[in-house]
Design a protein around this nucleic acid. Structure first.
Length: 287
DNA sequence: ACCCAGGCGGGCG
DNA sequence: CGCCCGCATGGG
């Protein structure tokens, strides 16, 4: 096991893990020690924050691990610059970026992100974690060949609806199986969609069964890094209506227009802070 | 026992 | 386009 230090600026691993992104579902975070362990391309990586400006990384492949951490947590994003743009004249975003300073968007594997956010529909964070870990344990890499790694499209398309349901997927089993077979057999290579601009990418994602407006935006944002994606879920919707619309109801279409007008090309970051603040405000739901 | 959770697909007007 | 409905499951 090798170890390295990585300098960071405006980064908070705890906030980032708690913000219900793909690593929240597949990774293991120890709240007592602040250590996060996750698997990337079959490599085990363990990280924790030794100081506000330093991250400790442990892995057998330390070089790859350092690159993965930098990419995964978007460490090249200047959060100070992003804050100054999305919080300008906006009391609510300004409050959230102060309270959760260092909360970062993550960039994750498109296929894993797709499965996790199909799983997320009509579900809660704790159960998404439970289901994701069952999928990894039953259909992911086996001991000796990438244990703990996420199941491939081939593995999930070969699973029966009963097996998928037994992982806790319930009615989502048919979405997962159908999307997996499209990715495995029909040659829809999710990695190639990354070349498209946001509008075309979203249109492509919407063709997958179980992927609607909200899930497509989650995949675009956290699987492809499209910062102009703005997933509107229950928390964001409530937050927008309460904070910006005097408590009045608004359509999804109207909320998208408002977000685009306020935060433009960085609306994905605004969404992350709105979502996290909204979800933490009630704080009756664990991770 | 009852309620809710990072919505979606299908059917309707 | 908007609205309404059913939907599997585990935890509070």
């Amino acid at each position: 096991m090798k170890s390295a230090l990585l300098a960071v600026n405006t980064f908070n691993l705890r906030h980032t893990f708690e913000s219900a992104q793909p690593l929240t579902f597949s990774g293991d975070f120890d709240p007592a020690t602040g250590r996060l362990q996750y698997t990337s391309d079959g490599t085990q990586i363990r990280i924790w924050q030794v100081s506000p400006r330093e991250l400790r990384i442990e892995s057998h492949e330390i070089g790859r691990a350092k690159m993965d951490v930098a990419k995964r947590f978007r460490l090249s994003d200047s959060l100070q610059s992003i804050y100054s743009k999305i919080a300008d004249g906006d009391r609510f975003i300004s409050d959230a970026t102060k309270k959760y300073s260092g909360l970062r968007l993550t960039l994750n594997d498109p296929w894993e992100t797709t499965v996790m956010f199909i799983t997320s529909q009509f579900n809660n964070v704790k159960r998404i974690r439970l289901i994701t870990k069952r999928l990894i344990g039953r259909f992911g890499g086996q001991p000796g060949s990438g244990a703990g790694s996420f199941p491939t499209p081939q593995a999930l398309s070969a699973a029966t609806l009963g097996q998928l349901s037994d992982c806790g997927l319930g009615f989502r089993n048919k979405y997962i199986k159908a999307t997996a077979s499209i990715c495995a057999e029909n040659g829809l290579d999710l990695n190639r969609l990354g070349k498209l601009d946001y509008a075309d990418l979203k249109e492509g994602l919407l063709e997958l069964p179980g992927v609607g407006d909200k899930v497509a935006d989650c995949i675009a944002l956290m699987g492809y890094g499209k910062l102009e994606a703005f997933p509107v879920d229950t928390w964001v919707r409530r937050g927008l209506e309460r904070l910006y619309m005097g408590g009045r109801h608004a359509s999804i279409k109207r909320l998208h227009e408002m977000a685009a007008g306020r935060w433009g090309a960085l609306q994905g970051y605004a969404q992350l802070y709105l979502f996290h603040q909204g979800r933490m405000r009630g704080q009756h739901y664990g991770i």
